[in-house]
Design a binder for these strands. Structure first.
Lengths: 130, 130, 130, 130
DNA sequence: GTGGTCTAGACCACC
DNA sequence: GTGGTCTAGACCACA
């Protein structure tokens, strides 16, 4: 599991960290039930504050990606990630909307946009190769 | 041209305003060369701060969507919006990436994701209907 | 609005703060749409750290009691508090269960238990008296 | 006597264990003078740490539910559980208070709240049925 | 002015 | 060892 953070980015570190972990789950590099590093060790690894890691973990817990046990530490939700419901699809749509609008303005047609999406699906949906 | 702002959203007002204007351009409700309201009048219209409108306009200018003339006021870029280059496609990809990753985790397959995209393209690419 | 905290208590300060605010809402001392103090001013008032106040606010926001606007500050949810659903009733039951069990052991019968409850309902459900 | 622990709960294991034992006493599945498993065997049974069971037992002893003899082992208090005094009623009230306050906010009226309580009394006060 | 983010360092409860 | 809580102090984005 590699974590790549951009400390210059406008995107908060804890959000980047969340995305990286979600991506790890999507790629199945992180499997349901699998343990994640403790807040302290991950913070030390990445070279950030443990509170920042904790914030990412708390949010991921909130969204059902992980479970946090007081002693055992942090694990990927063993029951799998909560499946998309209507609320999620709406949220997705609202996040996609400005991307589509700007792309239209810039002359990116639907096929090109879908190609980018498809490539991402192919890259991220691949199972871990050992 | 309707501006819909959600003051309770986590997204900054100026960003929402940018998105709305970009969407207006995508829908061709706002055509190249067409005038936009002045900072002052738009702010009064929506009931927000001058600075907020100004920030949105400055950013839109920065990205080539509009031109700001000291005298003539604000117009949609008459030469059209700068077309997508490689940098834009990379940016798009990086914004799409976490959406795709989370969707995979939540069991949204590529076809469903593309369907949402296609619907948005259909909705936003339509010319203005009066 | 009076906030009474017990710094010696085993109960975390942020939880106590949450309870006090919820109680204020129940008493209708805090009405929907009404503003709450900023994190900084409340923290200064009570003499605790602003992060502790923030944690309480974030949790209350999460549970639908309040809304947090980046600039305008914090307000009691103008649409009212999310009404009890089945999940809440189950949660309530699970919290009540050990209280009932111990009370049974200690010879508190149902009528006495209900009397305590009824008194609390009477005390907390009263509208603010000016 | 069944012990049901939720290792994913926010509530500490030793507290859950205490509650289960108190509930057993309330249900009269555990009668005054009856022996409880030794710390060692109970820990092995449930698959938790010795210290955890010990902590639960010590606390139960502290509150008068059980007696711990060095030789004879652990027994439910043969003289019965100390009956509720004013201090207990105050404690009960303070624990009930936030539950009532939140319930009021969420539109649970006194009758509904009392119904939940009554059901719990009925369920827990029943003698053991074999 | 507001909340959001991040850091650094402390103590505690739990197992 | 784990996460949970609390403090203190800093800078930033937003309006």
């Amino acid at each position: 599991m590699f974590i790549n953070l951009d400390f210059e980015s406008k995107e908060p570190i804890y959000t980047q960290l969340m995305h990286q972990i979600i991506e790890g789950i999507a790629r199945q590099e992180l499997k349901p039930g699998e343990a994640l590093p403790s807040v302290r060790s991950l913070a030390a690894d990445i070279g950030i504050n443990l509170h920042t890691v904790n914030k990412a973990y708390q949010q991921l817990k909130q969204e059902g990606f992980i479970l946090i046990h007081r002693q055992k530490g942090v694990v990927v939700n063993p029951d799998g990630i909560p499946q998309a419901d209507e609320a999620y699809m709406e949220l997705l749509k609202s996040k996609l909307r400005p991307l589509v609008a700007e792309s239209i303005c810039r002359g990116v047609n639907a096929d090109e946009f879908i190609e980018v999406t498809t490539n991402l699906y192919r890259d991220l949906n691949k199972k871990e190769e050992i």
